[in-house]
Write a protein that binds this DNA or RNA. Structure first.
Lengths: 136, 136
DNA sequence: CGTCGATACGCAACACGGTTGCGAAATAGG
DNA sequence: CCTATTTCGCAACCGTGTTGCGTATCGACG
């Protein structure tokens, strides 16, 4: 299923902005910041900053992408063609700041929360060095 | 060990700003934003915004406090009198945004990372409703 | 294929958290 | 008390993200 089909399936208008942004996210091997998205489609299309934000928000709203809050206080976006998995793990590189989604990780946790605390979602964040930054 | 002693122990000058900020963090039951710290010591001392940021940074540098990145992209600070524990869990309230540190939680994880990825620190983030926001 | 209403886009301005530079004030040691 | 060094406060700045509004575009229908 390509970008246009996904957009149409979400009952949204197919516009160059949406097509290009979603395609970029689908092609990305990791979560991208708005700036990285802009850079990746810069030569072909020059999107307005606001349009890009709104497009990304729309994709998240339609569950075609999901948002990750990084350590540097910038949102990163990731395509989620099959819908977002409930328990998600992220690898956070402490050197370059890139965020990778780690699939196939089931944290079997025995949680004891303080009384009257109610857990909805569990997110596991692993900090370390990614392949590109690993000196070994 | 009180605030002044901790500061002196870190070979830093004992100033009203540091004393009050560290005392505030030590008294806090959860991680505080810079704004919350400012509000808590507002009636007594009115610190400059920059001074507060620098003081908090200094405390983090001296390992007297640690920083948590919340979902709203603002730093929250927590006193860590005994040094920062390596594996730390945070409870993140999805309604009021408050962050609580959960101690005594050892995530026994069988991690399989992609090749050449090197994990340094594992952070577990639990999202849900805190006691104050829990309708039950 | 042309028209029209709903929607998306682009521009400008704004909001907010956080940072930097620099001169003035306060600290700690002699 | 005096002085060197550190810290404070002010002002200005930066980047991410948001809002309002007029204009352009999509796509449905005739």
């Amino acid at each position: 299923m390509n970008a246009d089909q996904l957009i149409r399936h979400a009952h949204g208008r197919v516009t160059p902005a949406r097509t290009r942004v979603l395609t970029t996210l689908l092609d990305a091997e990791r979560a991208l910041t708005h700036l990285e998205v802009a850079e990746r489609l810069a030569p072909a299309v020059a999107l307005d900053r606001v349009t890009l934000y709104r497009t990304l928000d729309w994709l998240v709203e339609q569950a075609l992408a999901h948002r990750v809050a990084g350590e540097d206080r910038t949102w990163r976006f990731n395509a989620s063609p099959g819908g977002a998995p409930a328990h998600h793990a992220h690898f956070n590189c402490t050197r370059c700041g890139q965020i990778f989604c780690i699939e196939a990780l089931t944290p079997a946790l025995a949680l004891q929360l303080p009384p009257d605390f109610h857990a909805q979602q569990i997110e596991l964040s692993i900090k370390g060095l990614c392949a590109g930054c690993n000196p070994a």
